[in-house]
Design a protein around this nucleic acid. Structure first.
Lengths: 140, 140
DNA sequence: GACTCTCTACGAAGATCTTCGTTGACACTA
DNA sequence: TAGTGTCAACGAAGATCTTCGTAGAGAGTC
């Protein structure tokens, strides 16, 4: 296994690191409240697990998230998909949309992705003329 | 809080109960393998938490799932949505679809749901002729 | 040099989850 | 009636997560 799934608290910390970039224990603690040493300990554990790396600048250590937000989202979602949706991504997506309203742009984005998929289903690998070129839109 | 979120093992058990209907400890154990008393204990705990109810038929107790699969999916998904997707259902759905291929029917279902939502966005509450009547489909 | 601040490191305590071994009740049978 | 099986109840052990208290190192200040 590449990296362990972050626990809820670890995810909170990762979210801070993703938003603010590399940070000291103090910075994380100030974002999240609670005891300072709680976050120190958590970051130490996360470093052991490989979820963050740290470098020593001056006296305080600087922690950086190792997995990207995208990776973690994919991992957690894949997990839930298996455990609660019998592996069906579409069932999961359906249920997600059912729950909350979304913005018009998000819906448009979803629709574009659906168009993409249906096209791939219709004209599978190869045999493309021009439209399937959208496949190069996969993000970094 | 209505019902606690099931833990991973508890979810395994709920899935058995959803698929097979009410069952004894032995039936659950036979579906999932492992130690018999493990499932006995888990089911006792789940009964305390309110995730299952039990009735005594003959000697063995019969356990029934309390929350529906739908409810649990919604709950787990809402949780993940908050914790890892900043509350955005569409972002979550997008990421889910990105991960795995889905069947043509599932995609069609999704598309229908999107059509629905965009229609609601365009012509919000009230001012309906017929289509928006689907709003009465809210589950029990 | 003694005080004070800011760090990291260590370890422990409490909560929850998971897994089972053991015990005792009850019923069936030889 | 003694033996065998099936069942629920109980408790305990180990793992993981979360939260901090305490200690000790290093730097700056009076």
């Amino acid at each position: 296994m590449p990296l362990p799934k972050p626990t809820p608290s670890e995810l909170d910390i990762l979210r801070v690191l993703w938003r603010h970039g590399p940070a000291t224990v103090r910075a994380v603690h100030e974002q999240l409240g609670g005891g300072y040493t709680t976050y120190l300990k958590l970051l130490q554990i996360m470093a052991e697990k490989g979820l963050v790396t740290r470098t020593e600048a001056d006296r305080a250590h600087i922690y950086r998230a190792v997995p990207s937000e995208h990776e973690v989202q994919t991992s957690l979602l894949g997990d839930l998909m298996q455990r609660a949706f019998g592996g069906s991504a579409a069932q999961l997506a359906l249920r997600a949309l059912e729950t909350r309203r979304s913005s018009r742009e998000e819906l448009a984005q979803l629709r574009a992705m659906l168009d993409n998929y249906e096209q791939e289903l219709t004209a599978p690998a190869g045999a493309m003329d021009d439209t399937t070129d959208q496949s190069k839109e996969n993000k970094a």
